[in-house]
């Protein structure tokens, strides 16, 4: 066999074209700036604080209530709002970190369908036979959410109905142990 014949034979082994998911998958994993997401929220918090100050000073002019109590109320409002903004940011950040860590989902030890990243602050998972569940590690403090597991290092584990859901991530999500709050999305099976 001469060189040309060998080359011709080698050329019979053709590679497939790159799949379209290569580009779309890369786009999904492109790290978007978290700062941009946070800035408008902090902007709203500052705007809220400025508006509250205006209202307090306005009230102080027409009200007999001592001005200190207005400041306490203002402080409480601002504190609640800022902690709410920070919790919201933390929840979004968690979603990003999980999405970028190539998670694999196991239901009672069996590999299952991929996670859904349709929402900004929670991750959805379709649990076979149990329906769709949302989870987060930031306590939403709303009806329907219960603490059902924990996140540690690269593993997220919680109970969804009768199933034990274990999510293995390629990178660390939290160094320390964190709770997982879960909600059953009724009507979605």
């Amino acid at each position: 066999m001469n060189d040309t014949e060998l080359d011709q034979l080698l050329d019979s082994w053709e590679a497939p074209p790159p799949p379209s998911t290569l580009r779309s998958g890369l786009r999904a994993r492109f790290p978007r700036s978290e700062r941009r997401r946070l800035s408008p929220r902090l902007g709203w918090a500052l705007a809220f604080a400025a508006a509250s100050c205006t209202v307090v000073f306005g009230l102080a002019q027409v009200n007999t209530k001592p001005v200190e109590s207005h400041f306490t109320e203002l402080f409480n409002h601002v504190y609640e709002h800022v902690t709410g903004v920070m919790a919201s940011w933390e929840a979004s950040d968690l979603v990003t970190r999980i999405r970028e860590s190539r998670p694999k989902v196991y239901f009672d030890g069996q590999l299952g369908p991929a996670l859904r990243f349709d929402r900004a602050k929670v991750v959805d998972v379709d649990v076979p036979g149990e329906g769709r569940y949302s989870f987060t590690s930031v306590n939403p403090k709303r009806e329907g959410w219960t603490e059902a597991g924990h996140i540690h290092d690269k593993t997220i584990q919680f109970r969804a109905g009768r199933k034990l859901v274990r999510i293995e991530c390629a990178s660390t999500i939290f160094d320390s142990d964190r709770p997982v709050f879960v909600k059953h999305r009724t009507g979605v099976e």
Binding site: A15, P16, P18, R23, R27
Partner: peptide, 22 residues
């Protein structure tokens, strides 16, 4: 953070890299 610039790099280089990896 410019995604378009990133995709430009990707589009320029990815076909031979994919073949090699495959």
């Amino acid at each position: 953070g410019d995604e378009a610039a990133f995709l430009l790099l990707f589009d320029e280089h990815h076909p031979p890299l994919f073949r090699f990896a495959w």
